[in-house]
Write a protein that binds this DNA or RNA. Structure first.
Lengths: 154, 154
DNA sequence: GATAATCGCTTGCATTTTACAAGTGAGTTT
DNA sequence: AAACTCACTTGTAAAATGCAAGCGATTATC
């Protein structure tokens, strides 16, 4: 399964894990979709559309397709309603929880965000606890929101 | 220093720290520049150009400008050579180390990368130690590379 | 059982961003 | 002062994004 020499197929910029990761979710939207699946209990296309960030439907469809292609999420039609497609994080996807948590902490610390500082301080102090809860909810398919939709800044 | 009410300046998509963070470095290149400043000892425009990832010079110039504008890096002309501009991470910039580390670990775990697995396992086990070294090097302005340039996959 | 909603998209088009190649000007070396 | 290095800028084509509208397959309502 290794690259046979002479095959000019290197679509990757480099072998660096950071670079390879960024090729999968290094854009303005992918991590937001993952965030919503992870801590807001989103499951459907419509959920994302109405998330308030204002993602265009074609971009959303494109991102969902790509995230599925890279094995970060799965998509399956709901049994009880054939219109609905349920998106879920895979193990690979839920493993992005530490990344998301660090991004969240960094943003909250260095920018004026809508997140209450007490909540952030709490998450910083109890990183592992927070991550454990995220993972538990994923295992249990528990879709009740863990983190609220932060309001506007100020 | 707070936003005066009535000013219609909300260019931000939402108050979520993740969203705000992504507006600053959520693209294919910014985190690579930060990575190179952080663990490869890069300092100049030319360093980035030759990093092997193949960033175009206009994009690089744009990213450096934006990262400076958001306070993640600083740029100053070298005293001993007026042609050279030295880029450095600010405190805000070095605080992205945990984000980068988690992205690195995730990529190495879930994709076939050029990073030796022993190195990754080691970093996973000693996250804090690794971060402490990154911070020490930043404080001391120690530019010797901490992590090598990973080769192609395979 | 026809009609109207809902859901998850797709399509067309204008705008923005990116990629690629070449060039420029300030500063330095020879 | 000629050649060279460095950090960009400029022009142009290609690709990605944003926006509005539409569409086909369900499902709910009358």
């Amino acid at each position: 399964m290794s690259n046979v020499p002479g095959k000019p197929k290197p679509k990757r910029r480099s072998g660096c894990p950071v670079s390879i990761s960024l090729e999968m979710f290094g854009d303005r939207w992918s991590l937001l979709v993952i965030r919503d699946l992870m801590v807001r209990g989103f499951r459907t296309f419509k959920d994302f559309q109405e998330s308030g960030e204002g993602i265009a439907t074609n971009i959303l469809a494109d991102r969902l397709r790509k995230l599925e292609a890279t094995g970060i999420i799965t998509a399956e039609v709901e049994e009880t309603d054939g219109r609905r497609v349920n998106y879920r994080l895979t193990k690979k996807g839920i493993d992005l929880a530490p990344v998301l948590l660090e991004v969240l902490i960094w943003g909250a610390r260095h920018e004026e965000t809508g997140a209450p500082s007490t909540l952030i301080v709490n998450m910083e102090k109890n990183r592992e606890e927070f991550l454990a809860e995220v993972r538990r909810r994923w295992r249990d398919r528990d879709s009740t929101p863990l983190i609220p939709k932060f309001g506007a800044v100020g």
